[in-house]
Design a protein around this nucleic acid. Structure first.
Lengths: 203, 203
DNA sequence: AGCGTATTAGACAAGTTTGACTAGAGCGGC
DNA sequence: GCCGCTCTAGTCAAACTTGTCTAATACGCT
C-alpha cells in the first residue's frame, strides 16, 4: 500500500492532503490509487493498527477532517512492503499488451497506423518529460530521484517508439501472422485475418 | 474486457477453456484477469447482451458447463474497445515506480543492492524470452505477433537493466537526494534519509 | 485393487476500487 | 452586491476482483 508510505512522510495528514499529493504526482495513472480509494484505505489501515487517528478538527461548516499518523507497527509493515516491491520483480500490467495480442482482429493498415500513432504519442510524452527535466521547477524543488524516474520512463518510451515503427513496418510488408503449415488447420480459423473489405459483418 | 476478445475467437467456449487459455498466456500477470474473475465476467457480458449462452451440457456428474458465443452487439463492442486500446495511450501501472518514489526510505546500500538485483532478475527474464524466441515451439505453433510481443518485452527490459545499473552507481556515489537549498527546510524533514545505523527503530 | 493426486467446472463470500454525489466556503468579475 | 465557479473534505452504493472451496472423475503407480 502506497497510502501507508505517503502518510509516513506527510504525518500528520488528513485524507484530502494525501489525495492532492497523489494527484500532483499523477499517481492515479501509474499506481492503482484513485481518489475514491483513499478514505477506505485509511480506515482499513487504522483498523489494522498501522495508522492512528490523531485529531478530528472541523473548520467552519465544512466536512470534518480526520488526521492520521503512522504507528510503530505501521512503520514496520511499510518496510516489509517496500522491501517486497524493491526486491521482487512484479511485472507491470500493460493494457496495450492485451490489445496487441488481438492484432489479427484489426485490418493491417489500421494496425500499422495505430502503431505509428502510438509512437507519436510516446514521442510527445518524452518531449514533455525532457522539458520537465530541464525546468528549474523540477531541478530545484523536487528530490533528485523524481528526475531519475523520468529517465526510466523516457528510456522505456524511446525503445517502445522504435519497436512501434519496426512492427508497423513488418505489418505493412504483409508478413503472414500465422506460421507456415498451421495456416488454417488446428482451429485457428477464427483467428482469420480481418480483410480490408468492410461492411459485411457490420450490423 | 479481454475476456470478450477471447470468446470471440474461441467460439464457442465455456469458462474453463477461457481460463486455461489465459493461464497458458500467463495473462494473469500482465492483464488484470485472475481465474476467479472469468465466470463473473462471462455472466455480466451475457447479461449485457454481448455474449449469448449456447448450450449447457453436462459430462457425467461434473459441474455443468455453459458454452458461450459472441453476439453481433458484442462484436461491435469488442471493436470499439479494441480500438480504444490501440489508439489511445494508457500508461501501464508499475508497482516498482511506486516503490521507487520512496527511495529515500531505504538505506543507500540496500537501495543500490536491490537495483542490481532487479537488473539480474530482468536479465533472467530476457534470457528466458530469448530462448523461447529460438525454440521451435514458439516459431511453429504460435502466431508471429507473440514473438513480436516478446521483442518489446526484451527491449524494455534491456533498457531497464541499464537504468538500474546507472542509478545504482549514482546512489553509491552518494549524490544527495534533495536539491541544494531545500535541504531540510520546507517540511521535507520527514523525507530524511535513512542513515546506515540500524537497530534503533527496529522493535 | 487400492491409494493419492491432478483435472474439471464452477460457486461464492469477502475484500477492493471506482465514479458520482454532497454541500458549504471562498473568490473573482461585472 | 450577487452570480457562478472552483475548492474543500469526504460519503456511498455499485461494480469489480480475488482467493478459496467443492465434489466428482480420471489417472498413474505399486
Amino acid at each position: 500500500m502506497m497510502i501507508l508510505g505517503l502518510v509516513r512522510w506527510m504525518q500528520p495528514v488528513h485524507g484530502y492532503d494525501v489525495r492532492r499529493e497523489l494527484l500532483s504526482w499523477n499517481a492515479d495513472r501509474w499506481a492503482n490509487v484513485q481518489p475514491g480509494s483513499i478514505y477506505h484505505a485509511l480506515r482499513k489501515l487504522t483498523q489494522e493498527g498501522l495508522l492512528r487517528e490523531v485529531a478530528t478538527e472541523q473548520v467552519g461548516a465544512r466536512p470534518a477532517r480526520t488526521t492520521y499518523e503512522i504507528t510503530a507497527k505501521g512503520e514496520d509493515e511499510f518496510e516489509t512492503l517496500l522491501r517486497g516491491l524493491w526486491w521482487r520483480l512484479h511485472e507491470p500490467q500493460d493494457p496495450f499488451a492485451a490489445a496487441f495480442s488481438f492484432l489479427p482482429a484489426l485490418p493491417r493498415d489500421e494496425a500499422s497506423a495505430a502503431l505509428r500513432n502510438r509512437a507519436n504519442q510516446l514521442r510527445a510524452g518524452v518531449e514533455w518529460m525532457r522539458s520537465s527535466l530541464n525546468s528549474d521547477w523540477l531541478r530545484t524543488t523536487k528530490p533528485v530521484h523524481v528526475a531519475w524516474m523520468f529517465e526510466l520512463w523516457t528510456d522505456r518510451a524511446e525503445v517502445e517508439i522504435a519497436w512501434c515503427e519496426r512492427i508497423a513496418g513488418r505489418i505493412d510488408e504483409g508478413l503472414p501472422y500465422l506460421p507456415e503449415g498451421l495456416d488454417k488447420a488446428q482451429g485457428w480459423t477464427a483467428w482469420e485475418e480481418r480483410l480490408p473489405e468492410r461492411g459485411s459483418t457490420l450490423e
